[in-house]
Design a protein around this nucleic acid. Structure first.
Length: 339
DNA sequence: AACTAGTCCAACCGCAAAGGG
DNA sequence: TCCCTTTGCGGTTGGACTAGT
């Protein structure tokens, strides 16, 4: 255990503001220190964190006390490893929000941002890379990723096929329509397994990490049949953050201009301040969708195939009935574009 | 048993935003 | 408006632990 005295020039370069006037202990917390902190906060609340160490009789800085309480001592923390369902939620929200760990953690009751971050870095990141996905963009990694024959893992050279907001070209087989160049927002679109003739291994691996959409056999069968048939326009159909145009299922008669306006542009400027709140709300909905998805897929009587195709695959007016996750993605993308 | 390399995670660091005088 | 303090966040570090040799 290190005693750090900033005034005497020991310890770290700078130190916290709250550490400057006092000797502070660093490193792991002892059970006695934990007990003091718990006792103080459960009795008095934390109030100003900078005053907590003195009042609680601890040789720590307020910042350290706050961190210890939030990440470890809080009574409402959930113990144990992160479940598969939580993992799916993390992946899905991360796909939209990126490394905003605190925001992600808010949707996982009992989990801290630190815990989510650590889990991401130690577990999910590796899984995604092993699946051939860029953990930053959730897009498929390019063929520059060489398979390492020794450990059967995919080596990272960091060239994602597409950036979250990327320009891509669509080639058409219909005469008179040569190509279209579009800028795609990171719509979290259900991912299509690779067609068998592209990369069998990746196709197999890829499907194993996909989120709840793929746990429904009906969906799986549909997607697989779709994948094998969809060579329309020679568009690659594998993308985790797909715009419908990346999906390879576009009807050539589609009126792109009409069906592609981001939500951002149709929301009045006066409503903009409310957007962040709305995003929060939607994220919550997304979580409940994620939590209920498994059950609903199994028990629902609605015609899944028809509704799914209707709501997600129709190229035009596709977002007239957006799911919360789509809406959130649109909003996140629109906010980024605005910056 | 001893050593090494890799993994995990608690804790720290530094920055930015918020709040208050 | 400015300055200082506090709070919150994401990135990083380092020590404990584990698996492999």
């Amino acid at each position: 255990m290190v005693i750090c005295d900033i005034q005497e020039g020991l310890g770290n370069k700078m130190g916290h503001q709250c550490c400057r006037k006092q000797k502070v202990k660093r490193g792991l917390w002892s059970p006695e220190e934990d007990e003091k902190l718990i006792k103080y906060i459960t009795t008095h609340g934390h109030g100003s964190w900078s005053s907590v160490p003195n009042l609680a009789g601890l040789e720590r800085c307020g910042k350290s006390c706050r961190l210890r309480w939030i990440n470890y001592l809080r009574p409402d923390l959930k113990r144990g490893s992160i479940t598969a369902k939580e993992e799916r939620i993390i992946i899905d929200i991360h796909r939209i929000l990126g490394n905003r760990w605190a925001q992600i953690a808010k949707h996982l009751p009992g989990r801290t941002d630190n815990e989510v971050k650590n889990f991401w870095n130690s577990c999910i990141k590796k899984k995604l890379i092993a699946q051939g996905l860029d953990p930053n963009t959730h897009n498929l990694l390019s063929t520059n990723y060489k398979q390492n024959n020794d450990n059967n893992a995919w080596k990272l050279s960091y060239h994602s096929q597409q950036q979250p907001t990327s320009t891509f070209t669509m080639n058409s087989q219909i005469s008179g329509i040569s190509s279209m160049v579009m800028k795609a927002p990171p719509i979290p679109f259900p991912m299509i397994p690779l067609a068998p003739d592209t990369n069998p291994r990746l196709s197999h691996e890829f499907s194993s990490i996909l989120t709840y959409e793929y746990q429904n056999p009906k969906m799986q069968a549909f997607l697989e049949s779709t994948a094998s048939q969809s060579s329309i326009g020679s568009i690659p159909i594998f993308s985790s953050t797909s715009h419908p145009s990346e999906f390879g299922m576009l009807d050539e008669s589609c009126m792109w201009a009409g069906g592609y306006e981001p939500i951002q542009s149709i929301i009045p400027e006066t409503k903009q301040p409310e957007r962040q709140v709305e995003i929060e709300k939607i994220t919550s909905e997304l979580v409940s969708v994620g939590q209920n998805m498994d059950a609903s897929f199994e028990t629902s009587n609605f015609d899944f195939d028809f509704d799914f195709v209707e709501s997600t695959l129709l190229p035009c007016g596709m977002y007239y009935n957006q799911s919360p996750i789509d809406q959130l993605a649109w909003d996140s993308w629109a906010l980024q574009e605005k910056k």
